[in-house]
Design a binder for these strands. Structure first.
Lengths: 202, 202
DNA sequence: AGCGAACTAGACCGATCGGTCAAGAAGCTT
DNA sequence: AAGCTTCTTGACCGATCGGTCTAGTTCGCT
């Protein structure tokens, strides 16, 4: 849905997106109706279909924006750092912290991954994230500081650990994100095969 | 729904469950209607509600049975093995292989984990699995072969890795489950902090 | 003030959903 | 064959869904 939006229009749209994120995360995509959303915002149904051509389009826009935001965060955190192992470490921490600060979005991304309608929309974004990590892992292997194994598998495993531990310890138990990030990072370092002697540059 | 089932009744019920698993896994729980299921099996709608009091009950039964089956598999594989590290290793392999052989069920469990209606139904079963792994990890720590860290977090991380790598490499790319199991096991060994010198009993 | 574009309200629509029910067929037991 | 339980059919129901549409209001610009 391509529309020329005024300031007011942009604000209204943001209002709808914001409410929808909360509603989808809390009650699920399928069980949240368009009527729920417009009622929650306090507008008529016509408003929704002025800004979005369908419920599905809204959801995909949410997914896309989320993934863009998460990657931006990760890129910002590792900017200027040269050492690939440090980049991996910072990338993991950035992922966990982003998940912690955007728990609703984490839930939606996780849901979308398992829903055939949205899996393709999420797939590309995730691939980009994995590619980023893969690059650093390959550098680490080349420098002889990470034992050679399939870099993509390692990247995927790290993402899974970050996601899962965030869900249990931060989303469900409200523990300190920094501590969880440490735990995730340490598990991943080990998983990559970085024994202590590997951690320093040769 | 408690009913006295004849042989024929049990077969009919199994037929419904089997078709429902495939349909839910392929098209999603919400987008699969009761009408889809009974049409697929080729029976009237009354049949469904003779065996199940609701669509939700059917799904929960599927989840429960799946988790029971997966744990049984895991227990069988580690039976008689004393060494806690070996038990962890065999447990991981059993999980990956079960996921590989029951891809539809893996999908459903993953979906249910992220759906508030079913999260509680899955939660208990997952907790049991994590408790099992936790016990072995604690033994390993006590024996000084695993560095001391939160055993539950480690168990959760291992489960996440098994799940994710199974999804990508087996479910999506049809790679050899045994090879994937090796990859998962190796990542997890590292993640637990088992450096090579730890792998032997002191 | 006037005018077109941006925005909003909410009644309305056809489709589909999970679930019910009355009626009867099929299978056991005696 | 009778009679009870198990099983099956499919029309039917009220509710709710995503989406449409018309009539109207508000805004920005000249």
């Amino acid at each position: 849905m391509q529309r020329q939006l005024t300031q007011r229009g942009q604000e209204r749209k943001a209002q709808l997106v914001s409410f929808a994120i909360k509603a989808f995360a809390q009650n699920g995509y399928h069980t949240t109706s368009v009527a729920d959303i417009v009622d929650g915002v306090g507008v008529g149904k016509g408003v929704f279909y002025w800004y979005f051509s369908s419920k599905e389009e809204l959801f995909i826009e949410i997914l896309r924006t989320s993934q863009r935001d998460m990657r931006r965060r990760q890129q910002r955190e590792i900017r200027g750092v040269e050492d690939p192992l440090d980049r991996i470490d910072l990338g993991i921490r950035a992922a966990v912290l982003w998940f912690a600060e955007n728990d609703d979005l984490r839930r939606l991304l996780e849901f979308a991954r398992n829903e055939s309608t949205f899996a393709s929309a999420v797939h590309h974004g995730q691939k980009v994230l994995v590619e980023d990590a893969r690059t650093h892992i390959e550098e680490g292997i080349k420098e002889g500081r990470i034992p050679p194994r399939d870099p993509e598998a390692l990247a995927l495993a790290m993402l899974a650990v970050a996601n899962q531990l965030t869900q249990v310890y931060i989303s469900e138990r409200n523990e300190d994100p920094e501590v969880v990030a440490d735990t995730v990072a340490e598990f991943c370092r080990g998983g990559l095969g970085m024994s202590p002697e590997f951690r320093q540059r040769p």
